[in-house]
Protein backbone atom coordinates (compact mmCIF):
# COMPACT_ATOMS: atom_id res chain seq x y z
CA UNK A 1 0.00 0.00 0.00
CA UNK A 2 1.24 3.46 -0.86
CA UNK A 3 1.21 5.84 2.06
CA UNK A 4 3.15 8.80 3.42
CA UNK A 5 5.37 8.06 6.39
CA UNK A 6 6.98 11.02 8.10
CA UNK A 7 6.54 13.04 4.95
CA UNK A 8 7.97 10.45 2.55
CA UNK A 9 5.90 8.41 0.12
CA UNK A 10 6.45 4.71 0.74
CA UNK A 11 5.07 1.41 -0.49
CA UNK A 12 4.60 -0.75 2.55
CA UNK A 13 3.10 -4.18 3.04
CA UNK A 14 1.06 -3.25 6.09
CA UNK A 15 -2.65 -3.09 6.83
CA UNK A 16 -2.52 -1.46 10.27
CA UNK A 17 -0.43 1.08 12.13
CA UNK A 18 1.12 -1.73 14.17
CA UNK A 19 2.08 -3.63 11.01
CA UNK A 20 3.62 -0.50 9.54
CA UNK A 21 5.80 -0.01 12.61
CA UNK A 22 6.90 -3.64 12.49
CA UNK A 23 7.69 -3.38 8.78
CA UNK A 24 9.84 -0.34 9.50
CA UNK A 25 11.75 -2.10 12.25
CA UNK A 26 10.15 0.09 14.91
CA UNK A 27 7.96 -2.56 16.50
CA UNK A 28 9.78 -2.30 19.82
CA UNK A 29 10.91 1.33 19.60
CA UNK A 30 9.72 4.04 21.94
CA UNK A 31 7.72 6.06 19.45
CA UNK A 32 4.31 7.71 19.25
CA UNK A 33 2.04 7.72 16.24
CA UNK A 34 -0.55 9.90 14.55
CA UNK A 35 -2.59 9.01 11.49
CA UNK A 36 -3.82 11.86 9.31
CA UNK A 37 -3.21 14.28 12.15
CA UNK A 38 -5.01 12.25 14.81
CA UNK A 39 -3.17 10.62 17.71
CA UNK A 40 -3.18 6.82 17.61
CA UNK A 41 -2.48 5.44 21.10
CA UNK A 42 -0.19 2.42 21.25
CA UNK A 43 -3.04 0.24 22.45
CA UNK A 44 -5.03 1.01 19.30
CA UNK A 45 -2.26 0.56 16.71
CA UNK A 46 -3.15 -3.04 15.91
CA UNK A 47 -6.78 -2.11 15.40
CA UNK A 48 -6.18 1.04 13.37
CA UNK A 49 -6.30 0.29 9.63
CA UNK A 50 -4.22 2.12 7.07
CA UNK A 51 -5.83 3.37 3.89
CA UNK A 52 -4.18 4.19 0.59
CA UNK A 53 -2.74 7.69 0.66
CA UNK A 54 -2.96 8.12 4.40
CA UNK A 55 -0.26 10.01 6.28
CA UNK A 56 1.41 8.30 9.22
CA UNK A 57 3.62 10.27 11.58
CA UNK A 58 6.05 8.42 13.84
CA UNK A 59 7.82 10.56 16.43
CA UNK A 60 10.33 10.12 19.22
CA UNK A 61 11.73 12.40 21.93
CA UNK A 62 14.39 14.69 20.52
CA UNK A 63 16.40 17.75 21.48
CA UNK A 64 14.20 20.73 22.31
CA UNK A 65 14.03 23.98 24.20
Amino acid sequence: MRLTINGETRDLDAATVAEALAALGLGDARVATALDGTFVPAALRAATPLTAGCALEIVAPMQGG
Partner: peptide
Protein backbone atom coordinates in the same frame (compact mmCIF):
# COMPACT_ATOMS: atom_id res chain seq x y z
CA UNK B 1 12.67 20.26 28.00
CA UNK B 2 12.50 17.91 25.04
CA UNK B 3 10.63 17.97 21.76
CA UNK B 4 8.93 15.34 19.65
CA UNK B 5 10.28 14.94 16.18
CA UNK B 6 10.05 12.39 13.41
CA UNK B 7 11.97 9.27 14.36
CA UNK B 8 14.94 9.03 12.02
CA UNK B 9 17.08 6.77 14.16
CA UNK B 10 18.31 9.14 16.85
CA UNK B 11 15.34 9.25 19.17
CA UNK B 12 16.02 6.05 21.06
CA UNK B 13 19.60 6.98 22.00
CA UNK B 14 18.52 10.48 22.99
CA UNK B 15 15.83 9.15 25.29
CA UNK B 16 18.33 6.85 27.00
CA UNK B 17 20.73 9.77 27.44
CA UNK B 18 18.07 11.95 29.02
CA UNK B 19 16.76 9.24 31.30
CA UNK B 20 20.29 8.78 32.60
CA UNK B 21 20.53 12.40 33.75
CA UNK B 22 18.02 12.07 36.57
CA UNK B 23 16.04 15.15 35.61
CA UNK B 24 12.32 15.46 35.10
CA UNK B 25 11.41 15.72 31.43
CA UNK B 26 9.08 18.44 30.19
CA UNK B 27 8.05 17.74 26.58
CA UNK B 28 7.17 20.73 24.44
CA UNK B 29 4.92 21.44 21.49
CA UNK B 30 7.56 23.55 19.76
Amino acid sequence: TVSLRREAGGGQDFLRLMQGLGVRLLPNTA
